[in-house]
Design a protein around this nucleic acid. Structure first.
Lengths: 136, 136
DNA sequence: TTATGTAAAGATAATAATTCTCGTTTAGAA
DNA sequence: TTCTAAACGAGAATTATTATCTTTACATAA
């Protein structure tokens, strides 16, 4: 499915700026910060406004096109990979990687199905795994 | 164990400001923001400096006395409960609650013991559970 | 007692990410 | 082609946080 269709589905106008912001997050697979996205874009399209990038990002998050990734110390980072997944956080650097494991999801879903949290209705869960990357 | 002992163990000087900041986080069981902590403290001790509160919080985080909790939209929040635990995030408000479940931890530990993540050494994990609180 | 060193606190300026404002432009429907 | 709400651009404003610099508290040594 291409990105223009996604915008249409969400009843958002197709604008060059939106295409460009999405392209940036999608190309930078590193869970980029807003600033990294802006730098990437500015190289190709110097006329896009910083405020526009922020606004586009907000709209994307609101409509579920990209996701915000919370980290402990840093600024907000963005992730265009919208399937249910978890994150690996490097304890020594800013590196973040996606982690997807169907078996883990089943395990957790089964756990919470049998073991309800009283007074709380679960919508979603996401595991933050901290550790160190061996390579690179 | 009282708080003065904790400071001693961490080789930190016992100061009134540190006691007061810890008391604030501990009393406000709501994962308060720095600002909420500052407001709480200012009522009782109007002379403490904002910068001092931030510095004390940083030291606490660095020494593992409190923990930072980052949420999607907001500013940093703090948690004085340092045992391994997870968080329940309300999808509709800023409410955050701690969630601790020994069985869940065992389940996850066992899972990752048998199912290593290649190229990654796990130090810790924390589950972010999003949903809605039924009561209050 | 007095001097000295050092960690911590206080006040305020600086920084930086993000948001706001408001005038202008544009996408897409009619 | 025209119209209008939606989106964009530029820069100011905001706000949480950090940095800087001075002062204070307190321990140790002369």
């Amino acid at each position: 499915m291409n990105f223009e269709q996604i915008l249409k589905e969400k009843e958002l106008k197709i604008t060059p700026q939106r295409l460009v912001v999405f392209e940036a997050i999608y190309t930078l697979k590193t869970h980029p910060t807003a600033e990294e996205i802006i730098v990437f874009i500015k190289e190709r399209h110097p006329n896009i406004s910083v405020a526009t990038v922020y606004k586009v990002l907000d709209v994307f998050v609101e409509k579920g096109i990209v996701r915000k990734v919370k980290t402990e110390n840093e600024v907000m980072r963005y992730d265009a990979f919208m399937e249910h997944h978890h994150h690996l956080f490097c304890a020594d650097s800013n590196r973040i990687e996606d982690y997807q494991n169907e078996e883990l999801d089943t395990l957790l879903r089964d756990f919470f199905d049998s073991k309800k949290i009283k007074g709380f209705k679960i919508k979603d869960f996401q595991l933050h795994i901290t550790g160190t990357f061996k390579n690179k």
